[in-house]
Amino acid sequence: MSDIITSGAVHSELALAAYATNLVKGEAPDVKKLKKAGMTEAQAQAFKDNYTVVEQFNGVMGGSMTVFEDMTATSTWRFAGHSQLT
């Protein structure tokens, strides 16, 4: 059961980080940008220490995609989000 909870927490954190904008490819995500996306200081710092930005795309219609690479493992995570059109 704890693996399910841990996995859910990781996915939630990745999804939240995907809303950070103007991240730089090949670098750790910027703490200020992660905080602006909704993370706490501690969450943002821990995320920065564990992930790098592989790619980020922001479409003109509000769609976005960010790919993060986990520096502690060999996996790559992909998350997409979008903002509402107004």
Score class of each variant (00 low, 15 high):
residue 68 F to R: 03
residue 2 S to N: 14
residue 83 S to E: 09
residue 11 H to R: 13
residue 51 Y to E: 02
residue 57 F to V: 13
residue 20 A to M: 04
residue 10 V to R: 12
residue 45 Q to Y: 01
residue 50 N to K: 12
residue 36 K to L: 12
residue 55 E to A: 09
residue 14 L to A: 04
residue 81 G to K: 07
residue 69 E to M: 09
residue 36 K to D: 11
residue 17 A to R: 02
residue 29 P to E: 03
residue 29 P to K: 01
residue 50 N to Q: 13
residue 23 L to T: 03
residue 65 M to W: 12
residue 21 T to L: 13
residue 74 T to F: 13
residue 22 N to L: 09
residue 45 Q to S: 14
residue 54 V to A: 02
residue 59 G to A: 07
residue 55 E to V: 02
residue 13 E to T: 05
residue 53 V to R: 00
residue 71 M to D: 10
residue 38 G to Y: 02
residue 14 L to I: 07
residue 31 V to I: 15
residue 59 G to I: 02
residue 56 Q to M: 05
residue 10 V to A: 07
residue 66 T to A: 05
residue 9 A to C: 07
residue 44 A to S: 08
residue 51 Y to C: 04
residue 39 M to S: 02
residue 52 T to H: 02
residue 8 G to D: 06
residue 61 M to E: 12
residue 45 Q to I: 13
residue 56 Q to F: 03
residue 69 E to V: 10
residue 65 M to N: 07
residue 14 L to M: 08
residue 82 H to E: 14
residue 67 V to T: 11
residue 13 E to S: 13
residue 82 H to W: 13
residue 36 K to W: 04
residue 83 S to N: 12
residue 31 V to N: 03
residue 12 S to R: 10
residue 32 K to C: 07
residue 6 T to N: 10
residue 69 E to F: 10
residue 18 A to W: 00
residue 61 M to H: 05
residue 44 A to L: 05
residue 40 T to N: 06
residue 22 N to Y: 06
residue 20 A to R: 00
residue 72 T to K: 15
residue 67 V to S: 04
residue 47 F to M: 01
residue 81 G to H: 15
residue 1 M to E: 11
residue 71 M to Q: 15
residue 50 N to T: 08
residue 41 E to P: 15
residue 31 V to Q: 11
residue 41 E to Y: 12
residue 72 T to C: 06
residue 45 Q to M: 14
residue 20 A to S: 03
residue 69 E to D: 13
residue 77 W to E: 08
residue 53 V to W: 00
residue 62 G to Y: 00
residue 68 F to S: 00
residue 52 T to I: 13
residue 12 S to E: 06
